[in-house]
């Protein structure tokens, strides 16, 4: 998993300290990251996981969104929006606020399961799949330079890219509407799997997390 990340690509305004903590975990817990598919390794995948990690391990009131990035990365923004609505068992949620390592594992499994689920649904219609694959081609690098003001004399913003993102985001909303329940099961399964792996290595989650009877 790529550890060299630029925090300005994150969907939240985060401190250097938080980013360092995340990068350190990529190194310390790298044996857990091996479940991520080899072929899909990319810069933006690491940023995705950073975003999910940050959003599940911090209460909403403490998170500040990076407004610029909601425009640059509308697809990731929408997925994070969906994740926010999905329920997490209370004792796990409490543990996630306390325990960064558990949150890190959950973020990896959530990314993996959701990406797999959404990719399969996107592949149903040939035309949607084409757009989805085209967007994936941009995942190796930061998209911020595409929105650099120096290109204004050519275009106000990268229209082709923005339209592509827009199409995929619309399809994502369709998928969300149509498969709301399976999506939430997938999410629950991801957290269950991550918790099981965590408990197998580091001990029971209720050791510190305030499991609710």
């Amino acid at each position: 998993m790529q550890a060299k990340l630029d925090k300005s690509d994150c969907m939240f305004l985060i401190s250097d300290e938080k980013l360092n903590q995340f990068q350190q975990m990529i190194d310390e817990l790298d044996l857990f990251t091996l479940v991520l598919p080899f072929v899909e390794e990319s810069y933006q995948r690491s940023i995705w996981i950073l975003d999910i990690w940050y959003s599940i391990s911090n209460e909403e009131i403490n998170r500040i969104s990076n407004p610029e990035n909601t425009m640059i990365y509308p697809y990731r923004n929408s997925i994070l929006g969906i994740i926010k609505t999905l329920p997490i068992k209370r004792y796990i949620q409490l543990a996630l606020y306390e325990n960064e390592r558990l949150a890190f594992l959950c973020a990896i499994y959530i990314y993996n399961e959701l990406d797999d689920f959404i990719s399969k649904k996107m592949a149903i219609k040939e035309e949607v799949k084409e757009n989805f694959d085209a967007l994936k081609k941009y995942s190796n690098k930061s998209l911020r330079p595409f929105f650099d003001s120096k290109y204004i004399e050519y275009e106000n913003y990268p229209k082709k890219l923005a339209m592509l993102q827009n199409t995929v985001v619309n399809e994502l909303h369709e998928i969300h509407k149509k498969y709301e329940i399976p999506l939430s099961w997938t999410f629950e399964k991801a957290i269950d799997d991550a918790s099981k792996v965590y408990e197998a290595v580091f001990g029971l989650i209720n050791d510190w997390g305030g499991r609710v009877p």
């Binding site: 810069y43 930061s142 998209l143 911020r144 330079p145 595409f146 050519y154 990268p158 229209k159």
Partner: peptide
Amino acid sequence: ASYEQLTAHADASLYYAKSHGQLYIYN
């Protein structure tokens, strides 16, 4: 200046060259 930043910027510049049908664009 890093590898990632340089390639991301070169890619963006390539993107605009492509979408404007030009060999390259120069700022």
